[in-house]
Design a protein around this nucleic acid. Structure first.
Lengths: 201, 201, 201, 201
DNA sequence: GGTTAAGCGAGACGGTACGTCCGGTCTTATT
DNA sequence: AATAAGACCGGACGTACCGTCTCGCTTAACC
């Protein structure tokens, strides 16, 4: 997101922003993220790949993390999760989608690095939430429906449930570096819908 | 941990490693971690702070993350969690200790950055687990005891429980940048001991 | 001097050049020259100081040196040298005026930088001469009068005399960085009027 | 000249300076000076041409002018002026050598730019004098000999004579951009040896 | 107890990237 | 049509670190 989104404030003079340039930068960022990862991605490389001056990037984004998050938010498609209406099926699909995003897309590998930037730039937290928002919205709807049909208690804390499920996957896979398998997905589904603590098989 | 702990290679002649130097490096790393954080910490600064040549650091650790994890493992005390024998009390204390570590110590701010290094150097995952191990051991014991006294089912998947609890806190605080309060701790205790999903107050 | 002083091109329609703008640019240039010197002066700063677009400057001057020379020519007053009719007095005053210009005004500090631009843009040489012309005219008149009254030989090469005197001062002060004092002025006066080579005191 | 020539003070530790690197930088500087001139020469280009890191250049020279002057001092040969013992012949040859240096070598085109740096870095003046010193020494000797044999007055101010001759050429050619021909050389010789002011032909 | 190889500090080195400034050019809206 | 504002590409700035490489000194471990 640019330093100032589309503030209609003062009509301002000057040349208008070139939208092609803007898009080229985001595209180059997404491409490099997939190719070389967040750590190796440098503003210099993005500029060169996008055929753009470095200053143009710094004009609109004040840090690598800001650029990357906007690129991810605009350039990484939401997993299309079919909604059946069955709480169990839908919840399982939602968790699997989260697992997929964290495990199989550049976003997964990138999120810890972005999170690491929060202490240095608190605005990063808001940007991360902005990226997560649409994914989280989908999960919230599924749980909301589950509560509506009585599959979970009506006063369940949906935000906490989401943090539990995503957090467990995130932590196991991205922090501890342990593979997350279908068993864990099933454990999470059972936990939410059956109040069943994870058991050993 | 040095590249080769006690390599029995050709002990022919030569000189042994200087333990003072080794310790000075770890101390400087811990100090800098607390002062300026992981991102700003550079090998060069550690060397200068420790009064040591850069090459000496590279001789024993092959990356910043390796050095930092060893420094954290040796230089950051384990929270002393008193054990009462009461599952609820002990579990709450354990979760609070985890929360404290993630929230109030340099380790919390550092973990995401270390995790971000995993894709580049898979050995990092093992090192992170090594740092987490003693903390995790404590939690495992508490849950083991809870299972023994019937406070949780006997066949509960202790590893999954730990990932759930720590993951939820980690994710909410360190990834989403949202404060974690006592309510969440209570929710986690209830979840584990009562099979009670988090509810809104 | 504008690229086309009075371009008689297609005066058809359109709008005339704004003389206020023109003067504001020259004023800003003179001010910045005095404040920060030629090297630090940038078109960007001049534009900003003058409240003018960069393109407006580039439209009328094609280089920093062209702008600065015109600004100096129009914005730096000629030293008022009183003419007594006495060759020695007038010559001394003329040399002192040159010394003053080279030593105590921004022009002195700027001339070497402008000269340095000659190899890149030969037009610079003509512009420099244009700035020097009125100063040189004054000196020429003094020497002309001296020749007329027989204080110097009638066929003396006035241009060479001027280059000798100004060159010696310029070279000693601005190239070698050595202070030029009253002794040197006297040496030059004696050289021209008495044919007396410089002596040690 | 490096920031600290060869100060034998503290024997200092650390790796010794690599003389090949040092020479490669000076060589690249001289080559670029001849090819593209002082203004277009950038530290970046020198580094790349010499196959050297930029920081290595900055370690030993703190500015472009410092580097260029040392390169010129070490990389540009002194004109070999044969000494006959005849004051007129030798003086003429000396002046012609100076004319040659200022007119036909990169040094000439470079000197005004270096001089322009003096106000920003006074140390530049000393560096320029260092470059001029051997050339000036040669001239001084010639004039010294002329004084010894009575071709010029015994108490002549040799430094002033040199500034007069070199200054006149420098100023006419490099500042005013006017060609300097053999006539001027002859005028200078006559001035010094005959006390003859320049005359029109 | 003398020899010797490794440990070590210091720091030079080739690189890469940083974040900034400016040069020139071009576009937009205003006057 | 000339302008103020300012976006844009490109190039260079001077700095910080990276990880590697000498240097010359010190010191433990072996003969």
């Amino acid at each position: 997101m640019p330093k100032e989104a589309a503030a209609p404030g003062p009509p301002s003079a000057g040349r208008a922003r070139n939208p092609h340039t803007h898009q080229a930068i985001l595209d180059a960022t997404v491409a490099l993220l997939a190719e070389i990862g967040y750590q190796e991605l440098s503003i210099e490389r993005v500029a060169s790949r996008a055929g753009v001056g470095k200053a143009t990037i710094y004009r609109w984004w004040n840090s690598k993390s800001a650029l990357v998050i906007e690129a991810m938010a605009h350039g990484m498609p939401l997993a299309e999760v079919p909604r059946t209406g069955d709480p169990r099926t839908d919840l399982r699909a939602t968790i699997e989608a989260a697992l997929h995003t964290l495990t199989d897309t550049p976003a997964g590998a990138t999120l810890p690095a972005l999170a690491a930037d929060i202490p240095r730039d608190p605005a990063t937290a808001e940007r991360i939430r902005q990226f997560l928002r649409p994914r989280r919205d989908a999960a919230r709807e599924v749980l909301h429906h589950a509560a509506a049909v009585g599959a979970v208690p009506a006063d369940v804390d949906i935000e906490a449930i989401i943090d539990l499920c995503v957090g467990a996957i995130f932590y196991r896979k991205l922090v501890r570096g342990v593979e997350v398998d279908a068993v864990m997905v099933e454990q999470l589904v059972s936990l939410v819908l059956d109040g069943q603590l994870p058991r050993n098989e």
